[in-house]
Design a protein around this nucleic acid. Structure first.
Lengths: 124, 124
DNA sequence: CCCAAATTAAACCACTCAGTTAAACAACAT
DNA sequence: ATGTTGTTTAACTGAGTGGTTTAATTTGGG
């Protein structure tokens, strides 16, 4: 069983990437990265109905990126626990990482000049 | 210009993550990571029509992950050039990384017991 | 020129998705 | 009990997706 059920966790990857492919959900994650929030708190910045936000959160949950605990009548959402805990800020890191990458690519593609490859932008 | 027009390249991120959210496209990327391929070569392993594969490639192209050069009547697809070049294998890396992460999470969630975590299953 | 190969384009289908509104449910306050 | 707050569910819409099949397009080879 060297590569046992790659297909299965491929579905998980599908869910994760799909969850990340929406800007609202990405910003929700970023919001969650600075502490747990209720659904309402998550929905507020986006001028979006509760129901809509609820769906987004469910998508994030399904992808295993967000964890929910019901406290009274409010649902407390937080980034995924234990094993995925580190993956959360790693996620934010690589989002920025890719932002840089794609930004550089865009610049590169706009100018036909090749040569001054700016690397080492590992700031902060 | 710390965070200038985040919205704009957010669309790029959308495209990239969406491109990655499909297993066929991910495997196409993996295939491309070992060298450029024609559309037909890309389509072959998936028991899928040329037209279908063509669409997938177009999606990858739109996300800036794949680069196409027309050689005669065949189209030669390769992973994106210069700045995204490193992002390609980085991509494969973090795919495995996340596979492990999610796999561990799944195991963790299945067993309410915490402590006797069987680790070290870093096969292959 | 004509035919076959490689690819795209167009039209279409079933399905999903992001969003809404309206209603239901749950829990705290009065 | 009634109301109000936080959230989900249900039903719906409009748009997009992955997939197909059937042309059209380009190109290389007799």
């Amino acid at each position: 069983m060297v590569t046992p059920m790659v297909q299965q966790r491929s579905e998980q990857l599908d869910a994760v990437f799909h969850a990340l492919s929406d800007p609202t959900r990405r910003e929700m994650l970023r919001s969650l990265s600075s502490g747990p929030r209720s659904i309402g708190e998550l929905a507020a910045p986006f001028s979006m109905s509760f129901a809509g936000a609820s769906k987004h959160v469910k998508t994030l949950e399904r992808a295993g990126l967000v964890n929910r605990s019901v406290e009274g009548r409010t649902h407390r959402c937080s980034l995924a626990p234990a094993p995925l805990a580190g993956a959360a800020d790693w996620l934010r890191f690589y989002e920025r990482f890719w932002n840089d990458r794609l930004d550089a690519l865009e610049r590169e593609l706009r100018k036909p000049e090749r040569g001054g490859a700016k690397k080492g932008e590992r700031k902060e």
